[in-house]
Write a protein that binds this DNA or RNA. Structure first.
Lengths: 180, 180
DNA sequence: GCCTACATGTAACGTGTTACATGATTAC
DNA sequence: GTAATCATGTAACACGTTACATGTAGGC
């Protein structure tokens, strides 16, 4: 089956940005990629080690003044190749995203209507907050990086987040209506 | 952190339907719940065992003629309670759905435009097929179970799938436009 | 002295998939 | 006889999170 290890490619990708250390990668994840990818230190450091072992990157110990020592990672030519290879490979199976909201709703006939409505209503509020967050990030990108062509792809992913979240909010609204 | 084991509740939920055996549950998953939940035998059987141990269900060996023996599971009162309890509990952390499409796109400036467009275009085709599948299922439900109130909640989840898929298709279209 | 941010790392655990093993029965 | 469907189950592995351990440096 040879499933590709996406985490490895996420890190390879981050090495093409200004991210040099595991710590920086975690920060980048938690901001820019947060709405579609997540990663913990428990994965980052072992994966970085593995990437070096495979010759896809090199490490360099660097002392900073005023800050602890860091390990800086740099993509090798082989690493760049590996990344491009992954980028141009077609999507494998579209993984089924597990959706807890729908799982609960599916069995909600065992609950009274008011509770179900409350449940969806609560979810709707979460979605509205999320939408605001996306819009804030979008504005920040547009203000700070007018010149950066890199931001273009970032905006694509944000646009996705916004569109899907809006569709979800509308679904919440329609479903509540149907329940009443 | 006491994270709830969703798989256990999925099975508890299935036991409120006509599903009595692990085999039936797998089939049900692969049809009705397929677009938002998935489960393998490697999870189903051990979880059923655990559910019985916890006193949430009982087992019964049944011989069928013309077919192999089966183990039929029935929810206990405690099991029903546990399910209702879960249904009325609020959503914990909204888990970040890992999105391979967005991950690739995020790093796509290292690829030529034509390839990126091809990639999104391919994804769009998958989505269109998916949408057709949803619509077919929807029609089947409406034809076969006009009387069944149970179908109502199933249709809610399908409506979700349709709306989100449509929004995704539109995003593909818009993104391809922007890339050109 | 203590808190925060920076920085790296591992061990234990939980979850989930895949591949394999086993066997009944029916239809061809 | 052999393929397909029905039916149950486990062991090995892959993946990911959490909690913990360790240490530097700056600001209060």
């Amino acid at each position: 089956m040879a499933k590709t290890n996406h985490t490895k490619y996420a890190i390879l990708g981050l090495l093409t940005t200004s991210c040099r250390t595991g710590y920086q990668m975690k920060q980048m994840m938690d901001t820019s990629l947060n709405h579609f990818w997540k990663i913990s230190y428990g994965q980052i450091y072992p994966t970085l080690k593995q990437i070096v072992e495979e010759g896809l990157a090199t490490v360099q110990d660097t002392t900073q003044d005023g800050k602890p020592d860091i390990k800086e990672y740099y993509l090798t030519t082989k690493g760049e190749e590996e990344l491009r290879n992954w980028l141009s490979s077609p999507l494998e199976t579209i993984p089924v995203a597990k959706n807890e909201v729908l799982l609960k709703l599916f069995f909600s006939r065992h609950q009274n209507k008011a509770e179900t409505i409350e449940f969806i209503s609560h979810y709707q509020k979460i979605l509205q907050e999320r939408l605001r967050t996306y819009e804030e990030i979008e504005q920040l990108i547009q203000i700070h990086s007018i010149d950066k062509a890199d931001a273009k792809y970032w905006l694509f992913t944000l646009d996705y987040g916004k569109r899907i979240t809006k569709a979800e909010i509308e679904w919440c609204h329609a479903t509540i209506e149907k329940l009443n």
